[in-house]
Design a protein around this nucleic acid. Structure first.
Lengths: 104, 104
DNA sequence: TCGCCTACGGTAGACATGCTATGTGTCTAC
DNA sequence: GTAGACACATAGCATGTCTACCGTAGGCGA
């Protein structure tokens, strides 16, 4: 996975609905057809960073199967950041496409 | 710039024609509409890595304006790597698009 | 001739972030 | 009673980009 993309993916996932870390991991793997298999050692530190920047907030709840889980949700700043990061990605991907396609 | 993408861009640039580092830098900036402004501190180490992996080779020549310049060109292994890396990027970009577009 | 700009080369160290390895505990199914 | 899914988390390494710095040579204007 390319550096800098994980946080956008997490924000995007949480925009759809609040979720816990394990759930985020499953979501990303499924939605990407297993292209993104996020390891705990990447996921948890990323979540910590997002919390510190106040882009997400977390609270302990009980998951449907009766287990303790920390559910995260987007803050207002997080929604703003998601927009910013998404558009940045679009520009980046467009530029990549331009060069990879440049005739040759 | 996202980590891991610079090398593909360099390989791609060199596939079109042999070029020196400064020229690669200009090429990337122009072709990407200034989205990619590569710094020397990123470019030269990247070129060193590509040399070490034998994906490119270099030789000193004289540029059109009569200056010393080290021209790099793709090796056979480099061309193979370019294909591999390009397809990897495609998969990655596709997966990103899937998630960023997932309805919400 | 002096200074500045552009074309070219390069290194050192900081920093960000993903990966590997490791650890804890519960619940369910076999 | 044990294998595997569910759920949390940390420590340390590896990778690669950025900031900042340094050096040469040619051309041009004042």
């Amino acid at each position: 996975m390319l550096q800098g993309t994980l946080e956008v993916l997490i924000l995007r996932c949480l925009k759809l609905q609040a979720n816990h870390a394990y759930g985020i991991s499953l979501f990303l793997q499924q939605q990407s057809d297993s292209e993104f298999v996020v390891d705990n050692g990447s996921l948890y530190p990323a979540i910590q960073r997002l919390l510190q920047r106040k882009w997400i907030q977390g609270q302990w709840k009980t998951s449907p199967n009766g287990r303790r889980a920390r559910y995260y949700s987007l803050t207002a700043a997080g929604r703003k950041e998601l927009l910013r990061a998404t558009s940045k990605w679009q520009r980046f991907a467009t530029a990549m496409a331009k060069i990879l396609a440049s005739e040759g």
